[in-house]
Design a binder for these strands. Structure first.
Lengths: 129, 129
DNA sequence: GCCGATAATGAAAACGATTGTCAATCCTCC
DNA sequence: GGAGGATTGACAATCGTTTTCATTATCGGC
């Protein structure tokens, strides 16, 4: 992919945000930064980054898709604040072992899993605004 | 909620399907059964059943929402065939303990989690058509 | 068994996130 | 400094889902 102002801007915006963020939110954030990028283009870059495994993808209950640049390349899960989106990455080898064991017991192959933990972070618990 | 032909039909259709099923799929299934129910009505009943905890809800990667009448009322997870939707319910007390422990360590409160396991069931592995 | 209040239905329109279209624009390599 | 091909972005289209609202059906009271 070519280096473009828009691509760089999307990557930079992602790097600045710790929380899981939607495409629309990033679009607005870029506009506010004076780095306006078309919404379509934001979606496109997010898709490419997701395909490459450079961002993690999460789907909110209401259907909006959230993206986040994670710090580790290892398989991990997320502890996500349901108010502000702030996220802690967690690893749990015992979880992987458990899911593999359960799936094998049922005769399932080609196994993958999704696990996300939702809660209220300390900041949001202190300031429920 | 009043007893209606449509409500009964939706519940009956759900009872007949083992797999996680979409609203649109149920709608078509009902029509084929000669028990046609408006799509809007199917959505409405599914929403009510989901709110009551009588059906479990799952979101597919493409955004479609899937529903399933589960056999246990206990908190459990799903081992879902990504080809046919056939589902095995699994419980994992150690998972609950782990997520609670991890969340507490990070200071998160009001914790919940989602965990689904996806794979290929024995039937679909035998007949990849 | 009938009636009326009111809940349920469903066709069509609205909605919202996302994706496709396509002409204009921008990189990159020569 | 082009030429050529990828990238952009305004707009329209898509698709699952929800809302609207006039019509229909249910059920408690008579």
């Amino acid at each position: 992919m070519r280096a473009t102002r828009q691509g760089d801007a999307v990557s930079a915006a992602l790097a600045e945000v710790d929380a899981f963020t939607s495409a629309q939110d990033l679009h607005a954030r870029l506009r506010d930064m004076g780095q306006a990028v078309g919404l379509t283009t934001v979606y496109r870059h997010l898709q490419v980054l997701a395909d490459r495994g450079e961002v993690d993808v999460l789907r909110r209950d209401d259907g909006e898709t959230l993206y986040r640049r994670c710090t580790t390349d290892n398989h991990h899960h997320h502890l996500v604040c349901r108010h502000c989106g702030r996220t802690v990455e967690v690893e749990g080898p015992e979880i992987e072992a458990w899911t593999d064991r359960v799936a094998a017991a049922a005769g399932f192959t080609d196994v993958a899993h999704t696990l996300e933990i939702y809660g209220t972070c300390t900041d949001c618990a202190a300031d429920p605004g």
